[in-house]
């Protein structure tokens, strides 16, 4: 860090970006860890049912199990594409 670097516009500190990204992804991956083994298959079968009616891509489905003080919540998120009226 010389005096000249203070005159230049400050770039964003990449280390803090790295930390933030890691905190998010690691928290997400930990929440999936130890989840039931049937989740991927459940996701696939749900997707097949939904596909019968609306076109959706595999990436637009998110199945997640949350544990919250003794009760488990199975959360299913499907993002529908911009729909065109049939």
């Amino acid at each position: 860090m010389s005096i000249f670097s203070y005159l230049l516009p400050k770039k964003q500190r990449t280390a803090s970006v790295a930390k933030e990204r890691l905190q998010i992804i690691v928290a997400r991956e930990r929440s999936m860890r130890g989840g039931p083994d049937y989740l991927p298959q459940l996701q696939e079968e749900l997707l097949a049912v939904v596909r019968k009616y609306v076109p959706v891509s595999p990436e637009s489905v998110n199945v997640q199990v949350d544990r919250d003080s003794g009760c488990e919540i199975l959360e299913l998120n499907i993002t529908l594409q911009d729909h065109q009226d049939a």
């Binding site: 860090m1 500190r13 990449t14 280390a15 803090s16 790295a18 930390k19 890691l22 905190q23 690691v26």
Partner: peptide, 16 residues
């Protein structure tokens, strides 16, 4: 590099 904010610090890694 940690001091310049270019590398995760030991505290950062431990936090995670």
């Amino acid at each position: 590099r940690v001091m310049r904010g270019e590398m995760l610090s030991v505290e950062d890694v431990q936090d995670i």
